[in-house]
Design a protein around this nucleic acid. Sequence first.
DNA 1: GCCAACGTTGGC
DNA 2: GCCAACGTTGGC
Length: 152
Amino acid sequence: MRYWLMKSEPDEASIDDLANAPERTLPWTGVRNYQARNFMREMKRGDKVLFYASNADPSGVTGLAEIVREAYPDQFALKKGHKYFDEKATPDDTIWVMVDIGWVATFPHIVALETLKEAPGLENMVVTKKGSRLSIQPVTKSEFDIVLKLGK
DNA sequence: GCCAACGTTGGC
DNA sequence: GCCAACGTTGGC
């Protein structure tokens, strides 16, 4: 089992949106970065996800999710006019993929980025590093466990 | 294949 | 809203 961090701006999808969605699952569309896409391709059903709110006040981890459907073609890349349209995508190769995630838990309070930066053991966590813009990041088990504790 | 220009992300 | 840090594009 692997662990991940997935960023979303609250306007796009928040942990509450996930908790209130039908079957408490949401498709994770719109990833248009190759490194992030490649991580999505590695995701397996049951992998755990730290749900991260970016561009928020404050930004931070708001809850837990898990992978309920592994990578499949992101059809929005084919939809002309859609904000996730990519003119290089074809039906045979949409270039981009999405996964479905399921709600697991909403933290009683957000674990702010500042808290993550100060927490012992998270010094090497990708999200705490300067200039880390990647929207999908791998997380180690020990990092995951520390964040879980901070969220309780 | 280099790299300047441009666009985007996301903390602050 | 600013802007640093990145990623991507495209001329050469």
